[in-house]
């Protein structure tokens, strides 16, 4: 096991930096809202999903006056839906993972996926490799959460006002990366321009529409419905246009 951790650790260094930092931001955000560190730790261990944990902050701190577990459930499903596709990619290797299989599925994350999706080194036992990467990543996240909670304890709250913006900044950064990636795919021809632009615009305007029509307390369900409906419609036209591209491609080829 030591040999495997020694090899896995350097691979996880970028995740170490990112997770400790975001974990600290999360730990502080929870502390500022008055949650005991045990809440933050439990959430980081059992929910273990950065975007969702930040999105949960507001529903949790307003639970006294507004309690809507069903909305939260759908929000969580939508925010975490991408895990379905990580699972699909890892079906075969994780089904071979034996005793660690439940844990590596339980503690999947964006960053862990980026490290395990290319497989394990040939000279190491595959299941232990996946377990080591997954456990190290989760350890960084929980450690960051604890450090953040301690920092939040030491620094007076009035200095920390506004630090919650780190959550907005995180989502903005991810969205910027995603859009940049999509535009690169347009340039190399693996994605069409409508495919690149439609999803973020649907997300933006669907949510704004919900905010205008349903108000700031209950717009999320509305927004999610608009987004899913929009994707349903877009799928039809997208399938037609890509079928057309394929047909024309075939005609040209002889």
């Amino acid at each position: 096991m030591r040999r495997i951790l020694k090899r896995a650790f350097p691979e996880t260094l970028p995740v170490l930096a990112g997770y400790i930092f975001l974990g600290i931001a999360y730990g502080i955000a929870m502390k500022v809202r008055g949650f005991h560190v045990l809440w933050s730790i439990s959430i980081s261990v059992f929910v273990y999903g950065g975007s969702l944990q930040f999105a949960m902050l507001e529903p949790m701190s307003r639970a006294a006056e507004m309690f809507a577990p069903l909305t939260l459930f759908f929000l969580a499903l939508l925010v975490q839906a991408r895990h379905l596709f990580y699972g699909l990619t890892m079906l075969e290797p994780y089904n071979r993972a034996g005793a660690v299989r439940p844990y590596v599925i339980f503690a999947m994350s964006d960053e862990t996926y980026s490290l395990v999706c290319s497989g394990a080194p040939r000279d190491l036992p595959e299941n232990k490799w996946y377990a080591a990467i997954t456990a190290l990543d989760q350890f960084y996240w929980v450690a960051g959460t604890v450090i953040g909670a301690l920092l939040g304890e030491m620094i007076p709250v009035e200095y920390l006002t506004g630090i919650d913006f780190s959550m907005t900044a995180l989502f903005v950064v991810i969205m910027t990366d995603q859009t940049r990636g999509a535009m690169e795919s347009v340039r190399d021809g693996s994605m069409t321009l409508p495919q690149a632009l439609f999803p973020p615009l649907l997300g933006l305007f669907g949510t704004l529409l919900g905010l205008l029509l349903a108000g700031r307390d209950s717009f999320l369900l509305f927004a999610m419905a608009v987004i899913l409906l929009g994707f349903g419609v877009f799928y039809q036209t997208d399938r037609k246009s890509s079928a057309k591209v394929q047909r024309e491609g075939r005609v040209k080829k002889p």
Binding site: T179, P199, L202
Partner: peptide
């Protein structure tokens, strides 16, 4: 979906 989700 992930891109629509982040925008939301």
């Amino acid at each position: 979906l992930p891109r629509a989700c982040m925008a939301m």
